[in-house]
Structure formats: structure tokens, C-alpha cells
Computed example of a mutant assay.
Amino acid sequence: MSRLTIVALAVLFTLSGGCQAPNDDHAEAQLVRVPYQSTFDQSDREYFVYLPKGYHEDDTTKWPVMLFLHGNGERGNGKNELDYTLAHGPIYEAWVQKRDLPFIIIGPQLHMHGRDSVIGYLKNRSPENYLKRLATGVPEREADFATTVHMSGRPADENYPYESYGPVVGWETVEQDLIDMLDQTLKNYKTDKSRVYLSGLSYGGFGTWYLGSKHPDRFAAINPIVGWGHKELMKPLAEHRMPIWCYAGGRDLVIQKQYFYPGLNELERLGHMARFTIEADMGHDVWKRVYAGQDIYDWLLSHRK
């Protein structure tokens, strides 16, 4: 039995300074906090569920579902630090930028795993920098990361710096929590079970490859961004003919593009193909362009199980 505890009535979540005004044209959109107990460490935590505009207007409509896995910088305790997960990705687009994205979006937060003791940007962040939904208008978008790296091609490299699941203590540690969240969302909301998608950036990109490979029957399509897929993960994806669109940054020195090729070539050897886009002019923050655009949402919605 799932250890997630679902409240009978979802409580509308409002950000500081961002309460929904009666005249807001997205007033029906909601960001809900859902409590659960983690199977990893039995801690009491919460995750976000975004309900799109129009969700409550028609009881017959079944909504597509997207599970979004954030990057390393948005880890936290799943309570008062959960707001950090609004920094990037589809919930940022839908909630903070008030875009009308037609998905129910699940937004979990990865455990800290002690990373704040070794990673400066985790140690030094502040709640004052939370991104907030404004009562009127939207906040200015963050500038792209600066890079002085010249654009160039790189040969494929199978000398991965990480194990098959990606960097240390990533989303693989809470695999069961993620599946439970997905199951409970499908059960408790008006969802289209044939249109369930998985997307993630950086650490979440690796998590997308991992979770998609371990549970290929659960998703209609996956979208890993700046996280490569290890060769060992490709067989289940090929067998299930999983639609995949992955992205790399041409100037990314964090997750370098040469490590994408071995897994993609293995996928092709197994008789399947992924769509692979290199944003040659960008560094690690390729997700800003991907999620701010429209192509990825249209592509996901074009697939169903």
C-alpha cells in the first residue's frame, strides 16, 4: 500500500506576495501542496501538484500528466524549502510566468543528502530568493548563463564520469516515492492515463533516463535535458519504443555532449532512435530555452500510450 497521505480536499497554495487576485485571468490555476511520507527515510514531506486553468470547469475532461524532476540546486526538505523547486521548469512556466500549459504537473523535491555541506550554491542560497507568483504581471526571466567556451564538435566518449544512474545521490534514491506520487495523482485527479510524461533537467535529466528505463510502461514519452543516458539503460527504452527527446548544451562544461553519444548509439543499435538536440550556443542552462518555448509541450502531447 502506498505510504503517501493524500488530503481529502486539496488546499490552494499561494506564494508570499502572489495570492491569486479575483480578476487574474489564470485565477482557476492552482498550486497544491500534497503531504506524504518518504519511503527513503520515513520523513514527512510535501510535493507540488499544479492544476491548470480550466481543471475545475468540466468534470469530463481528462488531463495529461507531467512528472518533473528538478536539478541539483533545488534540493530541500520538502517542507519550507519546497519553494526552491519553482526556480525552473514547467511549473515555473505555468505558475510563476502564468503560461496556460494544459498539464497536471507533479513537482517533487529531492532530498538534500548532505549536499549542502559540499556544494556552495546550496549552502549559500536564501529563501529571500524564492521565485514568486505576482498578483499582477510576471517577474523578469533570469539571464542565460555566461560562457566563454568556443563552439566545437566532440567525439563520442564512453568513459562516463558517473555510474549508470548518473551523479551521486540523485533521483534513483527516491524511485519508489516518485512512482507513488504518480499513482496517487492518477488516482485522485482527473487524469488521462494514456498521456503521462516525464521531464527533467540536469540531475533531473539523469533521473528521467533512469526512471524512464526502470518504468518504461508508465510513460508515453520522456524528455531528459542536460543529462545523458548510460548505455546500460537503453534496452528497456528500445523494447518499449519509448519516444525520447533529449537536449545538450554545446558549451556545457558540466554535462558534456560527448557522453550523450554512446547511449544514443546503443539505442540505435537496438533498433530504436531518440530525438537529440544540441543547443550549440548555450551552456548548462539549456532548460531555460526548452521550457520557455512551446515545442517540447506540443511534442509531448503528440504521444500517447
Rank of each mutant, 00 (worst) to 15 (best):
E175S: 13
K79F: 09
K62D: 11
D59N: 14
R304Q: 15
G250P: 04
V226N: 05
D295S: 08
E128L: 14
I105L: 08
I105Q: 04
A135I: 12
A94T: 06
E239V: 08
Q294V: 11
G107Y: 04
H272S: 15
H284Y: 01
G207T: 03
G293C: 02
G71Q: 00
V118P: 01
D44G: 11
Q30M: 13
W228M: 06
I91A: 06
G107M: 01
A8W: 07
D24T: 04
I119F: 14
E46D: 11
V168R: 13
R195P: 01
Y121Q: 09
T14R: 13
W299V: 05
N23M: 13
H70S: 14
D252W: 02
L110T: 09
N129M: 14
T147F: 00
V254Y: 09
A135W: 01
I244N: 00
G73N: 09
A274H: 03
A146L: 11
G71T: 00
Y50Q: 07
Y261C: 01
K235F: 02
P216C: 07
F145E: 12
Y259L: 00
S199V: 12
D25K: 14
L9W: 08
Y197V: 07
I179C: 14
Y92H: 13
G227Q: 02
H284C: 05
Y92T: 00
Q30V: 04
R289P: 01
L82C: 07
N159L: 08
P127Q: 07
V254F: 06
V226R: 00
